[in-house]
């Protein structure tokens, strides 16, 4: 195996070095560094994930913790419910559906708005680009709790937008024109005023906000390498700006576009705070359920682990799908 190869390489180096005493010390140190590195990476990067996988087959003891086991009951509970075949539930599958639904809509919204932005950004001077990057990196690294707090203040019913709507007379105008009933149908209004909490719109907007700077940062390398002379040539030949965007720019960034969308999607699958704050409890996601089962009131670690595995498998499946799409798109047609 490659681990063995690597160790053998170090050992070989050490063996050769025995001739010269000083070099022997260096060789032994190098071997030691080697072993420590492999041990650290395997222990801390891989073992935790393996533990999740193993514990997902564990058995929950009623009224106590859980024990090691090799049962599929946690997976059965996820897909058809614990009491199947007597009764079945799609509660957990439904949560996975909402995970994917939020992640897909938020990722698409972010990518569609980030693409033109990034394109315009890369056409600016290098200095301006650096300023934009500092701004975006600062916002993207800001903890999810702060941005969600901000949107919560903007969208909550007692302050922010709904109050602004009522105070400015916009609510009354909406009622007169009949749009208010449409908003009620969409779940964006209560009998008296507009409301954005809880709603799917607010959830998707906030999630999309969270990943938007990531989208720009991920698209940035591809777009900054785009040769401007191509677009200029197309313009000289009389193509309109939309034609240029559709026929020159979009095809040349197709691959990074697919890749970025998938990365955003995977990132969003694990989103937690925004969902608990903005989504209706009936529309909560698998990530929320994992949290509840591992640390929350129910305390069922094996089931939480099983849901984590399913989340991870979903993410990996989409990444593989993306790789396959990319390879297919890269092949000349």
């Amino acid at each position: 195996m490659s681990v063995a190869d690597d160790l053998a390489y170090g050992a070989e180096k050490a063996a050769v070095a025995i001739a010269a005493p000083k070099a022997a010390v260096v060789g032994r140190v190098s071997l030691a560094v080697h072993v420590v590195l492999w041990a650290a990476v395997l222990a801390f990067c891989l073992v935790p994930l393996l533990l999740v996988l193993i514990i997902s087959f564990g058995h929950k003891v009623e009224g106590a913790g859980w024990e090691w086991a090799l049962t599929l009951e946690n997976y059965k509970r996820f897909f058809v419910g614990a009491n199947w075949p007597a009764e079945s539930t799609s509660l957990y599958l439904g949560q996975l559906y909402w995970s994917m639904r939020y992640a897909v809509s938020a990722a698409l919204l972010a990518i569609v708005t980030a693409l033109p932005f990034t394109y315009l950004m890369t056409r600016q001077s290098r200095r301006a680009q650096a300023v934009w990057l500092v701004f975006l990196l600062a916002t993207v690294s800001l903890s999810e709790v702060f941005s969600v707090m901000g949107w919560d203040i903007i969208l909550s019913n007692n302050s922010g937008l709904p109050m602004l709507f009522a105070a400015s007379g916009l609510t009354d105008w909406l009622k007169e024109t009949g749009w208010f009933d449409v908003l009620r149908d969409w779940g964006l209004a209560n009998p008296r005023n507009v409301k954005f909490k809880p709603s799917e719109v607010a959830t998707v907007l906030t999630l999309s906000y969270l990943v938007w700077p990531y989208a720009v940062i991920l698209l940035y390398p591809a777009l900054s390498r785009l040769d401007p002379s191509l677009a200029e040539a197309a313009r000289t030949m009389g193509a309109g700006p939309w034609t240029v965007a559709r026929t020159v720019i979009l095809p040349s960034v197709r691959l990074p576009l697919i890749g970025t969308t998938l990365l955003l999607f995977v990132f969003l699958l694990g989103a937690y705070v925004a969902i608990t704050v903005f989504a209706d409890p009936s529309q909560h996601t698998t990530a929320v359920s994992v949290y509840e089962h591992v640390r929350g009131s129910t305390l069922n670690a094996p089931f939480g682990a099983a849901q984590s595995v399913i989340l991870l498998v979903t993410a990996t499946a989409f990444l593989l799908l993306g790789q396959w799409l990319t390879r297919k798109a890269a092949r000349p047609s």
Binding site: P48, V290, V294, S308, L311
Partner: peptide
């Protein structure tokens, strides 16, 4: 081997944080 080591070292950043968090909790 060194490429594999680098890939393994990048895995935690790539998986959804809640999954890695649960794993580290067990660990």
């Amino acid at each position: 081997a060194s490429a594999l080591l680098a890939t393994l070292g990048s895995i935690p950043f790539a998986v959804p944080p809640i999954v890695f968090g649960v794993g580290l909790g067990f660990f």
